[in-house]
Design a protein around this nucleic acid. Structure first.
Lengths: 392, 392
DNA sequence: TATCTTTGTTAGTAATGTTAACTAACTGTG
DNA sequence: CACAGTTAGTTAACATTACTAACAAAGATA
């Protein structure tokens, strides 16, 4: 029942070998049967047979001849990235941002909608369904080619059980919302919070590419982190890993209430605004608190002091993360992307003074697309190339 | 070359299936061929064939009849834990502590020796070789049945490359010491620092049993942590994960020198001793600083205050670890095992106030045997039951 | 004692990958 | 420009492995 039955005369090996062949193709972009054979230690006849099957299934395609290496020209094979498609959706504030993508993660169509606030959980699902219909029409992808949808949202999610315990922007609470959406759309759905989705996006397409230990640090309304260790997303035993807002940092003030930890209370954007309210009362809609603070710091001594204090405490947080996790790269996101070169340099210097192994410090590079890219890849992660073989 | 060749006509499946059979036997302790067949979805004839081979190889043995369930009595099979043996060694201070164990990790013989100080790297290797000879003789294990040796030591190790960069107790520095020892002993050797070995020990046999996300926090001469996430040891990108002594904690004092971070500087045992030198000058050899401090705190107000400060800052450190990693259990070791029930309760209360998901807080349960047990298991980890099948 | 159950084995079959030998197609050289 | 040498891909015969079906062994139950 549970175990994948090594049916009849062991299709298992065949599947494993097909996976390996597929992996080689994806890895090399274009490759011939003969080269796959060399890479995989599988015999040429075997590779030929497996490749032929996968061409039948639409997973691979022949794309022409390669250059001769002194003999017959090889037939180049390519993964058919259009074989399947994936959808992604992000709820950020009051907007719903959706996209449909091929198996490379390349967007084929995109769609945005403003949602009425406060959100009503049921109409939001209808919005999602309508958006998906439109994306399918626009991209020309047939519905049965869609593998699934990744949904990211601000709030508190339990990815394991597919539930959402707090999310004003969608109005989803409590109930097993993942199953509800799956039933409505007729598709596998993955739900996760927006920081995790952005982390994944930066990991596969942004600043994190090529690294295996990545921490994505987000400062906005709250402070949180996404953690990827040894190439795997780490979520913690109760999906509460990366809740770095609860760190006890710097001289420990009394907390105003029991809601949030010291770090987040004082050094998230609302916390900073609170500290800066003496001179930062005239904030424009949509402008960056950090940018404003940097501007004020050029003339105002009080602002300058606060800015240095903020940087310093952010650096304390980073030092703690680094001490514990020794990541290769720390990706700065949210309002942190507005820190100027000067500020990053300062933080880097402190870290060099405090900890033995300072990682790369880089700003998030995908901007507002990070979450959507991550949402799409969350599905790719659940249906890796190699698992497509199960689809018969 | 690299890939395990699916030689001839795919021995791979056979190996996979053998692994699964072996796993079932280990899991159940005693089990019949028929039950293995039910558990694994493999046919009874297939299981029989695989089991017979493994009996030939000495990995399994028949141990008698089980109870009838209405028909023929089953023949019970057991894993032969004596099929192979493993050695472990720990250098702690000036003593070398060694053991030889069966595949269950059960010690068959143990051996201790005081080493001359300062240690000379070459004679230490000879001590290791002599100790191993003695253990083999004493336990009656033939040398060719020995799978490998795990070596734990105080200091800085690079397990990946098998080198040791700092280790006064062994005198090993720089050179690829792992290969040197392997050549001398004719055995695979695994070298790691003592905290990692103790972490592993507690994980497989001590307080960490049954958990998948474990942080082992050690306070002694230094402060460090061993980290196991999703059942895997996490070492960080440059093997510097768990260097929690570098955390920036509490009100940040100026550091006396560049050698170590704030947390370790003030709240490791030497740091505490420094702070307590007003009233804690008369320490006996071999006594516990924390025990003494607790004793003094009963009468001396200054000691009481320091003790509370120490607990509080340890708790800050734990809060940071918990915020980032959300482990299921935090194992307290080193001098922390001397904290009394009162102290643990206090720390627990603080944590409940500060962070949303407080893990189990437990003292290390294996005492000084933890490191040795871990050393033995580091080899078991590298040669899991299932990988013994490669030994033909 | 006769029948039913459960365990374990034997015999024949199907699936899969391998090697060896072959065809196809191209390069380079005298 | 023909021919040897090389590389790519295919075909055919064979080996390995696990499966199903049938059977033998051994005990329970009535």
């Amino acid at each position: 029942m549970l175990a994948p039955k090594k049916t009849g005369n062991s299709k298992l090996v065949k599947k494993l070998n097909k996976e390996e062949v597929l992996q080689q193709v994806v890895l090399h972009g274009q490759i011939s049967r003969a080269d796959i054979s060399k890479q995989t230690q599988l015999s040429r006849p075997c590779v030929s047979a497996l490749v032929d099957e996968m061409i039948q299934e639409g997973l691979l395609q022949e794309v022409g001849m390669g250059d001769s290496k002194g003999g017959r020209k090889p037939i180049l094979l390519e993964y058919n990235y259009q074989a399947y498609a994936i959808a992604g959706a992000i709820f950020e504030g009051s907007t719903l941002d959706m996209a449909i993508a091929d198996m490379k993660g390349e967007f084929l169509a995109r769609y945005r909608k403003r949602l009425a606030q406060p959100a009503n959980g049921e109409t939001v699902i209808e919005d999602l369904a309508a958006g998906l219909d439109r994306l399918l029409r626009e991209s020309g992808v047939p519905r049965e080619r869609l593998l699934g949808m990744g949904v990211g949202l601000q709030g508190v999610t339990q990815r394991g059980s597919g539930t959402v315990s707090f999310s004003p922007s969608t109005g989803w609470m409590g109930s097993p919302i993942q199953q509800t959406i799956e039933a409505r759309l007729g598709l596998p759905v993955i739900i996760d919070n927006d920081v995790n989705m952005m982390t994944l996006g930066e990991y596969v397409r942004g600043a994190g590419v090529g690294h295996t230990n990545v921490v994505y640090m987000y400062v906005g309304t709250g402070i949180g982190a996404g953690i990827i260790l040894d190439g795997q997303f780490y979520r913690g035993s109760r999906e509460a890993a990366g809740e770095i807002g609860f760190m006890m940092i710097g001289s420990v003030h009394n907390r105003p209430n029991g809601a949030s930890g010291v770090f987040e209370t004082h050094y998230s954007i609302p916390g900073i605004q609170e500290q800066a309210k003496g001179f930062l009362s005239d904030l424009q809609e949509g402008s960056s608190v950090i940018e404003e603070l940097i501007r004020h710091a050029k003339q105002n001594a009080e602002a300058k002091e606060l800015l240095a204090d903020v940087y310093r405490h952010w650096a304390y947080g980073m030092a703690n993360i680094i001490s514990i996790l020794n990541p290769e790269i720390l990706i700065l996101s949210g309002e942190m992307v507005h820190v100027d070169g000067e500020g990053v340099k300062q933080i880097h210097e402190w870290l060099r003074e405090w900890v033995p192994e300072v990682p790369n410090l880089e700003k998030a590079s995908l901007g507002e697309r990070a979450g959507l890219i991550g949402a799409v890849h969350s599905v790719l992660e659940a249906f890796p190339f190699t698992r497509l073989l199960d689809k018969e």
